[in-house]
């Protein structure tokens, strides 16, 4: 059986969903998983991993917890010490950054932001997109270690029972970087890559102030993040962290609501693998309607508040 070391991120003593999805992806592909965790509360989070697909967890200890280079070298040591065949992480900021470093330590290629992971005999095969989704590639590797990161919201979390054997590994490398401060964002604010529902606005919102309507619709869904088209990010209406598309983030939520977005090829590439797509646009010929499951033609400023109200009514019913 293939054994993978899986980087598990956590907050408030619990594993983050993206990491649980990565464990789920490996488990579904028939791999044995060893979780590796770093940072404050790591030991507590490790204890919660029973049934997630991991049978063992390794908690990194030491003063260099916030240095990506030192942490990555410790993670590569864990792969060796555990006799594992590879390394896996969710394609979050830290997951992606650490996986690339660990892959280099293991002198192995990395497959980033994979949307498929399957076993083929003794080896693993991945599916991933090129050109932000304009092409879908199927790849295997001849590397000494198999390394990949998984796209958020694509893989199922394991809902099992079980226990996890927790051990420790000390970070020993001299750090070359140091995190001096973290300016946390509000707990309620989901990242556009992580959220199960994304409500995105484009130029059809007409003014930056009208994005309060998009924020309100996202709040009505409850589990939604606000997204934006490149046009409104470039005009400074919204931050780049919200941009969906080829020069922003590639997302795959269960539900994607595009409001006042015409659907440039770069935007479509970044959201076309979403579960269900809703488009609201005044132009019935807009390209966004070609990828949408459901469309409403009309003025976003009129439709969005009414839609928020309707969603709230449904949610209130339960």
């Amino acid at each position: 059986m293939t054994t993978l070391v899986v980087f598990v991120e956590h907050s408030g003593g619990n594993a983050r969903r993206g990491s649980l999805e990565a464990l789920g992806a490996a488990h579904a592909a028939g791999c044995d998983c060893i979780a590796v965790l770093a940072g404050a509360d790591a030991a507590q989070a490790a204890q919660t991993l029973g049934g997630s697909g991991a049978t063992k967890a390794v908690v990194l200890t030491g003063p260099a917890e916030h240095s990506a280079d030192a942490v990555a070298s410790a993670m590569a040591e864990v792969v060796g010490a555990q006799g594992a065949d590879g390394f896996l992480a969710a394609s979050t900021h830290h997951g992606q950054d650490l996986a690339a470093r660990v892959a280099a330590h293991l002198d192995s290629v990395l497959f980033s932001d994979c949307t498929g992971l399957t076993s083929e005999g003794d080896s693993l095969s991945v599916q991933r997109s090129w050109l932000a989704g304009k092409a879908i590639a199927q790849l295997t590797s001849t590397a000494p270690a198999f390394c990949c990161t998984t796209r958020l919201n694509v893989f199922e979390v394991c809902e099992g029972e079980g226990s996890v054997e927790v051990s420790e590994h000390a970070i020993s490398a001299e750090p070359k970087t140091r995190v001096v401060s973290i300016e946390a964002k509000g707990d309620s604010k989901l990242d556009v890559k992580e959220a199960p529902v994304v409500v995105s606005g484009g130029r059809g919102m007409k003014e930056a102030e009208h994005f309060s309507l998009i924020e309100d619709l996202a709040a009505a869904f409850g589990n939604a993040a606000v997204g934006a088209s490149r046009a409104v990010v470039d005009t400074g209406w919204r931050p780049h962290s919200e941009q969906v598309g080829q020069t922003g983030k590639v997302v795959a939520p269960q539900l994607y609501v595009a409001v006042g977005i015409s659907g440039a090829i770069q935007h479509l590439a970044g959201m076309r693998t979403s579960g269900t797509i809703v488009a609201i646009n005044k132009d019935a010929e807009a390209p966004i309607f070609k990828v949408a499951d459901y469309g409403i033609v009309g003025d976003a400023l009129e439709i969005v508040p009414a839609l928020a109200e309707a969603v709230r009514a449904v949610k209130a019913e339960g």
Partner: peptide, 12 residues
């Protein structure tokens, strides 16, 4: 910018 917020990192 990470999923947790904005991190300030010192590097050599």
């Amino acid at each position: 910018e990470t999923e947790n917020g904005i991190e300030t990192v010192e590097f050599s």
